[in-house]
Write a protein that binds this DNA or RNA. Sequence first.
DNA 1: ACCTGAACACCGTTCAAGT
DNA 2: ACCTGAACACCGTTCAAGT
Lengths: 187, 187
Amino acid sequence: MACDTGPVPRPRLIDRAAVLDAALAVADEGGIEAVTMAVVGRRLGVSAMALYRHVADKADLLDGLVERLLDDVPLPETGLDPIERLAALGAGIRATALRHPHVFPLLLARPATTAEARQRRDLVVALLQEIGVPADDAPRVERLISTMVLGFAASEAAGRFAHHPPAVIDADWDALQEIVRLTISRR
Amino acid sequence: MACDTGPVPRPRLIDRAAVLDAALAVADEGGIEAVTMAVVGRRLGVSAMALYRHVADKADLLDGLVERLLDDVPLPETGLDPIERLAALGAGIRATALRHPHVFPLLLARPATTAEARQRRDLVVALLQEIGVPADDAPRVERLISTMVLGFAASEAAGRFAHHPPAVIDADWDALQEIVRLTISRR
DNA sequence: ACCTGAACACCGTTCAAGT
DNA sequence: ACCTGAACACCGTTCAAGT
């Protein structure tokens, strides 16, 4: 007898994660403007049109790229004390910026509102309260220190300090960390 | 007798300043991605190709746009004391960011190396020394407070704080200004 | 279900030609 | 000197068609 199994499913060649990984690799090698649907597709052995199954359009692909960047920031080990965990998070953000210098500035231009981003922000607020920042002040302190760290990391990634030797930039980072500590303890 | 006056010069319809003004207006209305050679040209009553007399290519046009933005930042009045002049400069940068929210984030992505930018930086370094910051420390302090102010202004312009009421964002700005003062006086 | 070829509107850029 | 029309390679996106 005839078995109507419906349309035969094709083997799934790519998924959203693969698209974002490929896009990130292209951006790292050739900058944001090198990220075109055709180039990302070719990297996956697939046509440009195949991407539209997994991202809504190019804007969605770019938004996904900053998500991917946030996933890249390692969450600090839970064994450390709160001040160390905060410092580790900052160092992780800076390292991510330097690993993906072309993509990182998008983080300031396209504010992330994903669950991932919110999770990191809530962690910082919680750590601040553990340190002793009053619950009423913690959100504001979080915004201020995030602005400082993001601003520094984006500046460094974009080359705003490029004409200084690395030792000078590292010293700048240390100075910024001290200001962050000052911001937390000031009251 | 015959006078060979050479090729007859056409009336000059546009110049570089007009191109940048038009591009800024387009960006303010429709965002950076609305800035195309054709649209900027149309705004000037001219074809897209006419722009190439006045900007090298589109990247040069975008670089010119951040120049224009820096010109927009008012230099503080000379009558004020150095601390007030520094505050006025910061407020001017924030106001410029809010006037041109789509263009401002380019400032962090495309570090300005023009004479205009250098002039502003040198002014800040000079003001810091007037306030009493040692000459050896002044450049570093300038980089730190510029990073904080630029980072905040870019974040606000890009909408990173958009879900907070204006009064909260203004209070954040005031808090940042206090941290700037702390950074200057700490030693 | 997932991918592709063909097609469309639009984009940046060049160059010879017009005034 | 300055601007334009025509042309080119490339881009994002759609949709009907293939498996």
